[in-house]
Simulated scan of single mutants.
Amino acid sequence: MNKPRRHARPLPDIAGALLADAFRKQGFNSSELVVRWAAIVGHDVSQYAEPLKIQWPRVPDGHKPEPGTLVLRVAGPAAIEIQHMSGVILERVNRYFGFAAIGRIAIRQAPLRRAPPAPDRALDPQAVRSVAETLPAQADPALRGALARLGAAIKGK
Rank of each mutant, 00 (worst) to 15 (best):
Gln47Glu: 13
Ala153Leu: 14
Gln83Ser: 06
His43Pro: 02
Ala132Ser: 04
Asp120Cys: 13
Gly98His: 06
His43Ser: 08
Asp140Trp: 08
Leu52Gly: 03
Ile80Gly: 05
Pro51Arg: 02
Val74Tyr: 01
Lys157Cys: 13
Gly103Thr: 06
Ala132Leu: 04
Ile154Asp: 05
Ala49Val: 00
Gly76Thr: 02
Phe28Cys: 00
Gly87Gln: 13
Ala38Lys: 14
Thr69Ile: 12
Trp56Tyr: 10
Leu19Thr: 01
Thr134Lys: 15
Asn2Asp: 12
Arg108Asn: 08
Ala127Glu: 06
Ser86Asp: 07
Ser130Met: 12
Leu143Cys: 00
Leu112Thr: 02
Leu150Met: 12
Leu70Thr: 04
Asp44Glu: 15
Ala78His: 05
Thr69Val: 07
Lys64Phe: 05
Gly156Met: 14
Pro119Cys: 08
Leu11Asp: 14
Gln47Ile: 13
Gly145Ala: 07
Gly145Leu: 12
Ser30Met: 01
Gly27Gln: 09
Gln109Val: 07
Ala152Phe: 08
Phe99Tyr: 05
Ala20Glu: 00
Ala142Trp: 03
Gly68Gln: 00
Arg92Asp: 02
Lys64Trp: 03
Pro4Leu: 14
Ser31Pro: 04
Trp56Gln: 08
Arg92Pro: 03
Ala15Phe: 10
Ile80Ser: 04
Asp61Thr: 15
Ala79Lys: 05
Trp37Asp: 09
Ile40Gln: 04
Tyr48Glu: 15
Lys3Ile: 12
Ile14Val: 13
Ala127Cys: 09
Glu32Ser: 07
Glu91Trp: 06
Gly103Arg: 03
Ala127Ile: 08
Arg144Ile: 05
Gly156Lys: 14
Asp120Pro: 15
Ala142Gly: 01
Ala153Trp: 10
Asn94Arg: 11
Pro10Gly: 13
Leu70Trp: 03
Ala39Trp: 11
Glu32Met: 02
Val34Gln: 14
Ala78Lys: 03
Ala122Ser: 13
Val74Gln: 00
Leu72Tyr: 01
Gly151Pro: 04
Val128Asn: 07
Ala8Pro: 05
Lys157Ser: 14
Trp56His: 07
Lys53Trp: 00
His43Cys: 03
Asp124Lys: 09
Trp37Cys: 10
Asp44Cys: 10
Ala122His: 12
Glu32Asn: 03
Arg108Phe: 08
Pro51Tyr: 02
Leu18Asn: 06
Ala115Met: 14
Ala148Ile: 12
Ala15Met: 10
Ile107Ala: 12
Arg6Asn: 09
Pro60His: 03
Ala49Gln: 00
Thr134Phe: 10
Leu19Glu: 02
Asp61Asn: 07
Glu66Ser: 06
Pro12Asn: 08
Arg5Ile: 10
Asp120Val: 15
Asp21Met: 15
Lys25Ala: 15
Ile89Trp: 02
Ala115Arg: 11
Leu18Val: 07
Ile80Pro: 03
Ala153Lys: 13
Ala118Val: 12
Ala106Phe: 01
Ala115Thr: 10
Ala8Lys: 01
Trp37Gln: 08
Lys53Met: 00
Ala8Gly: 03
Gly62Phe: 01
Ala100Gln: 12
Arg129Lys: 13
Gly76Glu: 03
Lys155Asp: 15
His7Phe: 10
Met1Gln: 07
Ala15Gln: 13
Ile105Gln: 04
Arg108His: 12
Ala20Cys: 01
Gln47Asp: 14
Pro65Tyr: 00
Gly156Asp: 12
Val131Thr: 11
Val93Phe: 05
Glu91Gln: 05
Phe23Trp: 02
Ala22Tyr: 09
His84Trp: 04
Val59Phe: 02
Pro10Leu: 15
Pro51Ile: 06
